[in-house]
Design a protein around this nucleic acid. Sequence first.
DNA 1: ACAAAAGTGTTGAGAGTACACCCATGC
DNA 2: GCATGGGTGTACTCTCAACACTTTTGT
Lengths: 251, 251
Amino acid sequence: MKDTITTQPTEALEKAPVRDHPTVAVDVVIFALRAKSPELDHPTDLDLQVLLIRRGTEPFKGMWAIPGGFVGLDESLEDAARRELAEETGVTDVWLEQLYTFGAPDRDPRTRVISVTYYALVSADLLDPHAGSDATEAAWHSMYNLPPLAFDHDAILDYALQRLRYKIEYSAVAFQLLPEEFTLRELQEVYMVILNDYELDKANFRKKLQREGNEVVEPTGRFRETGGRPAELYRFREDAKLEIKARRLFP
Amino acid sequence: MKDTITTQPTEALEKAPVRDHPTVAVDVVIFALRAKSPELDHPTDLDLQVLLIRRGTEPFKGMWAIPGGFVGLDESLEDAARRELAEETGVTDVWLEQLYTFGAPDRDPRTRVISVTYYALVSADLLDPHAGSDATEAAWHSMYNLPPLAFDHDAILDYALQRLRYKIEYSAVAFQLLPEEFTLRELQEVYMVILNDYELDKANFRKKLQREGNEVVEPTGRFRETGGRPAELYRFREDAKLEIKARRLFP
DNA sequence: ACAAAAGTGTTGAGAGTACACCCATGC
DNA sequence: GCATGGGTGTACTCTCAACACTTTTGT
C-alpha cells in the first residue's frame, strides 16, 4: 500500500482554523450485509454495503463520503472512531479495526488533513432503519455499485474491501456480520458475497468448518424454516481459535 | 490491535508549540539482519536488529527510542518516513510500509502527539558503519534483547515484529533483508531468525522455493565458498509472484 | 579418509476438490 | 409424488513434513 492514496475527512472543516500543523481526522468505513431489495426477509440475495453520508458543505457539496470527524484532544483514535460510528448507526460494541492512515498533502483543497481510517463490521439485525441522529442524510450503498465519492474516499473503500477480504480468509470476523444464530448456508453466503466468488462447494465448506482442531461453530438445536428441509441454526464457538496460520510462500 | 497501545515521537518536541490540536509525528522501525558478534564475515549466526537512537532531552532523557520526527506541512507521511530513514542510515530506495497509527491521549507527558509508524527493511550490506548524520547517538539492538525504551516504543516494536512475521510468510519481503545474491541457506536463515523457529527442514524449504508456479529465485551460476561444498548463489526473480493466497480458515 | 556443508529422493499422512448422493419439509 | 433446499460420502489429487541419502569441497 503506497501512501500516494489520499483521502479527506468529512464535514465541518470550516470549524478548524488554518494552522501550521496538520489536522487529524478519523473516518470510519461501516460495512454490513443487507438484502439487495428491501422486501425479502430471509436474506437470500445478500449484498455487501457501506454507510455513506451526503456532504452538505463545500468542497464536494452534495457528494457522498465516508462518515468521519475530528479527533478530540483527550480522545483516543479508537474512541473517536466509535463515537462517529455511534452517531451514524446508534450501534455500540461493534467490531472495529484500524485500517490505514492517509496523509498526502494535497488531498483537501482547504488545509492539510491527515485521516486515520477504521473499518467496522456491524450485524444487520442490530441496525435501526434510520438511526442517524444528525440531520445529515445517510444511506447504505452496495460496495459493488458505488456512487462518485468526495475527496479520495474511493481509494479508502478499495483498500477497506481488500483488507476485509484478506481478513475474512484467515480469521473469524465473518461472524461479526451475522446475527447470533445463523445457518451454515448463510455463513457460506457471507464468504461468497465478500469474496465475490460464487463457486464455493457446499460440502467442502461444511467439512472445513467441522474439521478436527478447527471447530468454530456449534449447533444450537434450533432450526430455521426454508423452502425445503429446515436448516439447523449454529452459533459461533467462543473458545474457537480465531486465526489460522498462513500458508507460507516459502518455509 | 487495540488502540490502547500508545507511543511517542522523538526529540525536539519543544519546538512544537502547545496547541488545541494533536501534533503528528512519524516514527520508523528500521530492521536489518546483522551478525551477533562483529567479527564474523560470512553470516553464520544472524540476528534480527533494529536501529535505535538515544534521547538527548527530557522526557526519557538517556533512554533509547525509535527514530522519528514531525511531518512537514507539504510532505506526505511516507516522504517524512523516508526522510527520517535517510537521516539515520544514509540509505534510500528501501522497502517501507506503514505499520499502525498510535494515538492514545496520554502517551506524551507534554502534549498530544499522534504517531504514524512505518517499518523498513534494509539490507545489511548497504549500511555504512556510522552513517547517522546527526550528532545523535544511534545503535543497533537485537530484537530479542531490547533495552528499556522511551514512551511506549516497546509496544511499537512488538507490533512491528508481529507484522513482519506475518508478512514474511505470505509475501517475498525477506529478500529486502539480503544482498542481491545469496545462498539458499542464507535465505533459510532469514526465515529462521525472524520466525524464531530453528526447525526448518532444508530439503522441504528448497522444494517449496522451486515448486511449479512459485519460482521466486533463480541460480546465478556463481558460488560462495563455505566450510564444505560451495553453495550456489541465487537471485530474486523480478517476475516472481509476490504474494500467495492465504490458507482459508473456512472456505 | 574424514569432516562439513550443499543438495536430492522417497514415502506416508493430511488437506483440498469435484461430484454424486441421501434426507426432511411444503405443496 | 415432486420440488426445494439441507446435509453427507467417496475418491482422486496435491501439499506437507520427516528423514535418509548423495555430492562436492577443504584438510
